[in-house]
């Protein structure tokens, strides 16, 4: 009886020892994890605010009728911490609760502080203040933001414009500044144009009608497609045949995103564009949107004189599920590439 015999003593001893060492290792591991966290918590308690508990209590407090009571939770905290908390909560709460949050922040003197920060010598501080002022709609804050539209640093000007987007009182000032300022024609301004297209389509349309600068129009075309501004989509269609290659690419991508009836025709044109980079980009769009009806066009591009386009055509064809035999059979002009 092998399992009923004392001959098994060494075996059993080994099992017991293994179990004991295992148990010890498990206990030590768990203990070290808990201890590490406890030390972290203790350190955090010494440091001021934050924490999920505070955020949770603030949100719960703002939902109650006596929401003014949550002010006591912020007592004794530094202005910077209060600003960070309000900024964070504004991303979470909506509707009535957001209005209460703004009122609370105003009671705590946050707008004054942010307006003062708009005069800071540090660009980052000014830009953050301009972003955070988007919550406040009082005339002083709006005036401060309008002043910030002439800040020496483009980052601050963009932040101020984003905060002003959608405010009726700031429309005319915003329109003249964003059209005159070259910062709004550079890639970092893409976010601003997206915001404006969503919040104030009318102002966006006016700006679009007034600008002919290619860089600015590129960003705006992208925003039109992204926001789905139906009334401006004809402009995107028009841009898809413009003389600016980058504009043609963005317009075609935008039309595809919106599933516009003109999208396929624009893509056809882009596939035959004189610019090789654009032909390659068109193939990338075919792959991205998995446009199986374009398979014959993709196969034609296998004969493109540019290696970049041929290579992209091969990748796209494979992504569309075309077989290697089809690719090999059609790519006759460049047989060596078929070996890759």
């Amino acid at each position: 009886m092998p399992f009923a015999s004392a001959k098994l003593d060494p075996f059993l001893t080994a099992i017991w020892q293994l179990s004991l060492w295992g148990a010890l290792a498990g206990c030590l591991l768990a203990l070290s994890l808990v201890l590490r966290r406890t030390v972290e918590e203790w350190r955090q308690r010494k440091a001021p605010p934050g924490g999920q508990e505070l955020r949770q209590r603030l949100i719960a407090g703002l939902a109650r009728e006596d929401w003014q009571a949550v002010r006591s939770l912020l007592a004794g905290r530094s202005a910077a911490d209060v600003a960070a908390l309000v900024d964070e909560l504004a991303q979470i709460v909506r509707g009535e609760m957001q209005l209460r949050l703004v009122a609370l922040a105003a009671q705590l003197g946050l707008p004054e502080r942010l307006r003062a920060e708009l005069r800071s010598w540090r660009t980052g501080v000014r830009a953050l203040a301009a972003t955070r002022l988007s919550l406040f709609r009082d005339p002083e804050s709006e005036a401060a933001l309008l002043t910030a539209l002439r800040d020496p640093h483009p980052k601050v000007r963009l932040a101020a414009a984003e905060s002003l987007a959608g405010r009726p009182a700031a429309r005319s000032a915003l329109e003249s500044r964003v059209l005159a300022d070259s910062a709004f024609a550079r890639p970092p301004a893409a976010r601003f144009w997206h915001l404006l297209a969503g919040r104030d389509p009318e102002l966006f349309s006016a700006c679009f009608a007034a600008t002919s600068e290619p860089e600015r129009r590129r960003l705006m075309i992208e925003a039109i497609a992204s926001a789905g501004l139906v009334q401006l989509l004809p402009a995107v269609v028009e841009a898809s045949v413009s003389g600016d290659p980058e504009l043609r690419r963005k317009a075609t991508a935008g039309l595809l995103e919106r599933r516009h009836p003109a999208a396929f025709a624009a893509l056809e044109r882009l596939l035959l564009d004189p610019e090789p980079v654009l032909r390659a980009e068109a193939l990338a769009l075919v792959a991205r949107f998995r446009l199986a009806p374009f398979a014959p066009r993709v196969l034609q591009r296998l004969e493109d004189p540019e290696p970049l386009v041929r290579s992209r055509a091969r990748d796209t064809a494979l992504r569309l599920g075309l077989s290697l035999a089809e690719l090999g059979a059609l790519s006759r002009s460049y047989p060596l590439e078929n070996l890759r």
């Binding site: 399992f3 059993l12 017991w16 179990s19 591991l29 994890l33």
Partner: peptide, 28 residues
Amino acid sequence: GAIWGEFVLAWLALTFVAGILVSCGALL
């Protein structure tokens, strides 16, 4: 009496300890 009691206990201990170790590993 078909098998040895100590064997059953040793097996149980090993099974439990292995389970605990794996769970503590997941916590880590």
